[in-house]
């Protein structure tokens, strides 16, 4: 299966670990991701906050480039996905029909064809791993843009974890906002939102949080030391990409190297479950 791949800016930067994991998983699942030539930034929150015209034009430029290729487009970033979908809806409203579909990477990889492939190739079932799934906002909301069937209570990540042998836990915060867009300008606000997510994840019994967006990942992973200092209690919850869990369960050899690039090291939790053979040496990877 071949799709056009829209990585988005941060996968070339701070989320290059996510990008490496995606490439690894695509290889395992027989998925060819052909990067969209000359793709541009989707404009993110900045454009839709301050310049509605640019917020339409930036993703539409990408959609026009993708239209020349004609393959379905997949985006691993929730915000990029949302902006591309908004651009597609805008074109549709003007009577233009696109010949391809825009996918969120989690939605794509949890289609039955891929879940079946994973189940058939399971090398290390993630037995005993207790995790909460955290979807964040923009792959699901608003449904008139995303076409998400169950925006208040999505379940595709839980289904994926079950397929991989892990134990997804129920919690009520899987689509609550972590405030990532305010992380630079108002870190005080995100500290409050994110701390509540840590507390609720822990209360649910989670040993880790699983995400499908690099904004959520950074916003939950990076401030744990700061929030711990403020709260007077230690938060040390690994925040894993769903792609890393797929790769781990399917026996991809590079997984420990990707995990070493997180701030809260997920390797001890996984090693304690017998899911990683030897904890790799500290963060040189």
């Amino acid at each position: 299966m071949k799709l056009t791949y829209y990585p988005g800016c941060s996968l070339e930067g701070t989320a290059s670990d996510y990008a490496a994991g995606i490439a690894g998983v695509a290889g395992l699942l027989g998925l060819t991701l052909a990067e969209l030539p000359d793709w541009n930034c989707c404009g993110a929150s900045a454009a839709h906050s301050l310049d509605a015209e640019a917020a339409r034009a930036l993703p539409i430029r990408n959609l026009r480039l993708a239209q020349r290729i004609g393959l379905d487009v997949v985006a691993p970033c929730a915000l990029c996905f949302n902006r591309l979908k908004a651009g597609a809806k805008d074109l549709e409203a003007k009577g233009e029909r696109l010949s391809f579909r825009v996918w969120d990477l989690l939605d794509l990889l949890t289609q039955p064809v891929f879940l079946k492939r994973m189940a058939a190739r399971l090398v290390t079932p993630l037995t005993g791993l207790q995790a909460v799934c955290y979807y964040g906002c923009l792959v699901n909301r608003p449904p008139k843009i995303t076409d998400a069937p169950t925006p208040e209570n999505p379940g595709n990540m839980e289904k994926l974890l079950q397929t991989l042998g892990a134990t997804p836990l129920e919690w009520s915060f899987k689509t609550d906002c972590c405030g990532a867009g305010l992380a630079v300008a108002r870190p005080d606000l995100i500290d409050r939102l994110v701390r509540r997510l840590y507390d609720r994840a822990r209360r649910a019994g989670a040993e880790c949080i699983v995400v499908s967006c690099q904004m959520c990942q950074a916003n939950l992973d990076l401030p744990q030391a700061r929030i711990s200092r403020q709260a007077g209690q230690k938060y040390e919850l690994p925040v894993l990409y769903f792609t890393e869990l797929i790769a781990l369960a399917l026996g991809h050899p590079e997984v420990p190297r990707w995990l070493a690039r997180h701030l809260v090291d997920p390797r001890p939790v996984l090693a304690a479950k017998g899911l990683l053979e030897i904890p790799a040496p500290q963060a040189s990877g």
């Binding site: 930067g13 793709w39 930034c41 404009g43 993110a44 900045a46 305010l182 300008a185 108002r186």
Partner: peptide
């Protein structure tokens, strides 16, 4: 009343333009 948020958005759009179409995270910061 929240110049930080406004300035961050402005810096973001300025950085994308300066870099020729994609965002440089260090530059926006």
């Amino acid at each position: 009343p929240e110049p930080e948020v406004r300035d961050f958005h402005c810096a973001f759009l300025g950085a994308v333009k300066l870099m020729g179409g994609r965002l440089s995270e260090p530059l926006v910061l």
